[in-house]
Design a protein around this nucleic acid. Structure first.
Length: 666
DNA sequence: TCGAGGGTTTTTTTT
DNA sequence: AAACCCTCGA
């Protein structure tokens, strides 16, 4: 008798989901994960919202899910993992590779912006872009706005007009949240409300300017990507048919624009998993709203909610402390974090006489910890604003404690590095007026006016760098302009690696550099490092994109790439410490006015965000948590002021932390 | 029109 | 302490 076969529908990977036998996997998932984590890892099709409290193994869960999808036979390239930094994406891919095999490093991963960059270059035509577009970083955008601002006749205005960074912030916030500029002004900048028309005008000119000159700022990257996806033409369909699974990390910090991108990405394969924690939402200034994460179920059908609540990071004492901080939040979604990690020391709240005593305390305590066998790599000092660590940095240097600082001014944001980049950007995109302007102003005898004239000649085609300057650069221009064009023409024609070109720029730039900066000796190190970094790149395009999107961390204090073995302490803004953890954590400057910051005291919403910031900071600690505040601190405006401890720690109950008072003779 | 000098304000956080 | 704005002499 002939056997009867029943044809069952199988999924895309050719495997029947219900029949999938755990034994076929090389990784023993059910042993290595808790129930909730396992639910998330096994999830296959559909939409999932994973609410993952601090330290509940969020990264671990994502890593295992990647491994499992790949083990199930899905093409790594069909998995897209959007993270907050590319470092986070890379770390996850590395961990998954160790877990399973090298296929895991083949998934697509990165930030929304870097994904937008790659996609838009690839599909430039269908978006109506030139694929050689240049990315404007925040400083570049501000420069353009300043230019436009200068052209408007603002002298006639009686009252102060917002400066470039404020204008940029307002316009950008509008793009990211979808709010009207007038509403933003009314809510956050009532004192500028009367300038609504001027701001709109600047916004319009700015947009046209960017379009005309092949420039995209951070927001444009997202807007163009969103439009590309939602227009859903052949190009977008082609792209989306290759993406089967989308995962988004740190979803609480995405904004409306980004959530539309997520929607756009899942139009064909409705498989989406977002992971986040509303209590750790700390990017409202970029348009994120902690409530967005709970709006997610409205975006997709049948969203399954998974909650990770077992904390694997901190001791009971630390967890009790951090739970208390977030319990006082005015608005939050219920969750109960618990730990089985056991008991340790109570968190300590340390008041010191002044800022320097605080630094000395931290240095001393670090040395003590090191005596006890805690590696410097396991220790971090966290602060609200980048400048809060200046005094500590001095003391660390005195004590010979190596450190790396995260957050704050980045290496590529320093004026001299931007100068060098500007030359390279012109050669790569001769329409990059922002860089042109910067480069022109470097030269003696050229101010805003003459630079404008030259820019006009450039856009009219009377001047260019593709032909020999003999032919195009008129006699009426000074020698240094002729020489500039000669140099750029040479560089434009030359084929060579980013490093070779950067070295040529440096040679040309050297005299200008020494003339512009008194402290050129100190800054010179950055330029050397810039050359060093360039050696990692073979294409100018990826080099320039990376410098704008994922620039290297720090300039002076940064150690060599080869120095990975060395131990170092981490100094970091709380924002840059997101997602990380250490054995021992110091939180500095816990003073009202510093943390929470003075600007946030005005509104409840921003105060609540400061609270979440304190929550993020304190949940980074595994074993030891030290929160310090100086009782006297120098305030540039008022001189010495007596300061109160941060309201977040002042409200802590006695049994949750012990208080230390540091005597003067330390 | 450039660029130096002086007086004033300003301050988070990041892609 | 640095960034910004305005004024004024060359």
């Amino acid at each position: 008798m002939a056997k009867k076969y029943v044809l069952k529908r199988v999924n895309n990977a050719g495997l029947d989901q219900t029949k999938m036998d755990e034994a076929r996997f090389t990784i023993n998932y059910s042993h290595l994960l808790n129930t909730a984590q396992l639910d998330a890892v096994k999830a296959l099709y559909g939409a999932y919202l994973v609410i993952a409290g601090a330290g509940t193994g969020k990264t671990r869960t994502l890593v295992y899910r990647v491994a499992r999808l790949i083990e199930s036979g899905f093409d790594p390239k069909s998995i897209l993992l959007l993270t907050f930094t590319r470092k986070a994406a890379k770390e996850m891919m590395d961990r998954a590779s160790i877990l399973l095999d090298n296929r895991c490093s083949k998934i697509q991963g990165g930030t929304f912006h870097s994904f937008a960059n790659l996609t838009l270059r690839k599909y430039a035509k269908s978006v109506g872009l030139d694929s050689g577009f240049t990315i404007l970083d925040q400083g570049d955008s501000e420069d353009v706005i300043n230019l436009i601002r200068g052209q408007l006749d603002l002298a006639k205005l009686k009252k102060r007009f917002p400066n470039k960074s404020t204008i940029n912030r307002i316009l950008s916030f509008s793009v990211n949240t979808g709010k009207k500029v007038s509403d933003i002004l009314a809510e956050d900048y009532p004192h500028f409300a009367e300038y609504i028309n001027e701001i709109h005008k600047i916004g319009d000119i700015f947009s046209n300017y960017k379009k005309k000159n092949n420039l995209l700022d951070y927001d444009d990257l997202l807007v163009y990507l969103k439009d590309f996806l939602l227009n859903f033409d052949a190009g977008a369909k082609g792209l989306l048919s290759t993406i089967k699974f989308v995962m988004v990390d740190e979803y609480q910090d995405t904004n409306m624009l980004q959530s539309e991108i997520v929607r756009g990405l899942t139009q064909i394969n409705n498989n989406i998993m977002v992971v986040g924690d509303d209590s750790q939402s700390i990017y409202s200034f970029r348009g994120a709203n902690f409530k967005n994460i709970m709006e997610f179920p409205k975006l997709f059908n049948n969203v399954e909610l998974i909650k990770l609540e077992e904390n694997y990071r901190s001791t009971t004492e630390i967890l009790d402390f951090t739970n208390h901080i977030i319990d006082s939040a005015v608005e939050k979604y219920p969750k109960h974090l618990y730990t089985r990690k056991g008991s340790g020391d109570l968190p300590a709240i340390i008041s010191t006489k002044n800022e320097n005593m605080q630094s000395k305390f931290i240095v001393d305590k670090i040395l003590e910890l090191r005596e006890e066998g805690v590696s410097l790599n396991e220790i971090a000092a966290l602060f609200r604003s980048s400048y809060h660590s200046f005094d500590l940095e001095i003391e660390l240097n005195k004590a010979n404690i190596p450190f790396i600082k995260f957050g704050g001014m980045k290496f590529v944001e320093t004026a001299h590095v931007k100068d060098v980049l500007a030359f390279l950007r012109i050669v790569h995109n001769p329409k990059d007026v922002v860089s042109w302007y910067r480069v022109l102003l470097l030269h003696e005898g050229i101010g805003p006016r003459k630079a404008q004239n030259i820019l006009e000649e450039l856009s009219a085609g009377n001047l260019n760098i593709s032909s020999n300057p003999e032919a195009v650069v008129d006699k009426k221009y000074s020698d240094n302009i002729y020489n500039l064009f000669l140099f750029l023409h040479g560089l434009f024609q030359r084929k060579g690696s980013p490093t070779e070109k950067a070295e040529e720029v440096l040679t040309y730039y050297q005299p200008l550099f020494k003339c512009k900066y008194d402290d050129f000796n100190k800054r010179g190190k950055d330029l050397e490092m810039f050359i060093n970094i360039s050696t990692n790149y073979r294409s100018m395009e990826s080099f320039l994109s990376d410098m704008a999107l994922e620039p290297p961390r720090d300039s002076v204090t940064d150690v060599d790439e080869t120095d990975n073995e060395r131990e170092y302490l981490t100094l970091s803004t709380i924002h840059s410490a997101k997602g990380l953890e250490w054995h021992s954590v110091f939180i500095m400057h816990a003073i009202d006015g510093f943390f929470p910051s003075a600007q946030s005291l005005q509104s409840l919403d921003s105060l609540e965000e400061e609270r979440r910031l304190m929550y993020v900071a304190s949940t980074r600690a595994q074993q030891n948590l030290f929160i310090s505040y100086p009782m006297h601190i120098f305030d540039r405006i008022q001189g010495f002021t007596f300061s109160k401890p941060s309201r977040f720690i002042a409200e802590i109950k006695e049994d949750l932390a012990e208080e230390w008072l540091l005597e003067e003779d330390f």
